[in-house]
Amino acid sequence: MPYSAAINDEQVEVLITDVLEQYGYDFTGYSRASLKRRLLRLFGLDKQVSFAEFRYKIGNDSTYFKRFVEQITVNVTEMFRDPAFYKALREKVLPKLGTYPFIRIWLAGCSTGEEVYSMAIVLKELNLLHKSLIYATDINPTVLEKAAQGMFPLSQMKQYSENYIASGGTKDFSSYYSANYSLAKFDNELKTKMIFSTHNLVSDHSFNEFQLILCRNVLIYFDRDLQFKVLQLFDNSLENLGYLALGTKETTDFSPISKRYKRLETEKIWRKLSDENL
């Protein structure tokens, strides 16, 4: 099968080095199995014929490099993904944060924004949106442009509505958007408390202090060392008694920050302990 022969392990490393040197994007800490699979997928999708040409195009065509970043990173997401998680946010986490005068939330690796709008809906229903600010970041500017538009395929709305109801939502989900041809355009009111910005978890620093950080299904693409580094970044960006939420298969266990965090029973949500509780 050409599938496995098109790019070998050494060539993967060559591309990682090229991209770091020419564009400053650092993929060295990415899990190689996923990364190689994404590279082969892009190679096939774009009907590339040789590694040499593929490498040349990535290194010398900045428009193609944009596509490269977009395709190498995984941007699959949905609204109210893992409804039980959103139920825990709605019932356990956000009511606690609701006692604060102001709530700062960081959604790291927000991709096309489905989770950002989900979060805004929950905040609105808890009557907390007016005093919240959601910082939504991603490595990839193209997906952020989509996220800022707040338009998602109408064909997905049935699934999202089911997720929303399973997460404890009681409104008519369709009241949050208007149908616009094949797209569902979400209410502008939801957007008023969102700030979209590029941020590279590998190379960029902490930029604020938050009460809640969500980063779901991003760490799975990183090796253990990079995972620990990013968890440290989150720790530096989280207030005492703030919450950190990861994907269903991700964990703070084994990392140096784990001793400062206590997990909420069933979901992948951890609370940062205050100094006197350590």
Partner: peptide, 17 residues
Amino acid sequence: DYHLLIEKDLTFSLDYS
């Protein structure tokens, strides 16, 4: 809801693509 990949160092990677 995850794909499973195998790393060269014989560890598992999960993938949500």
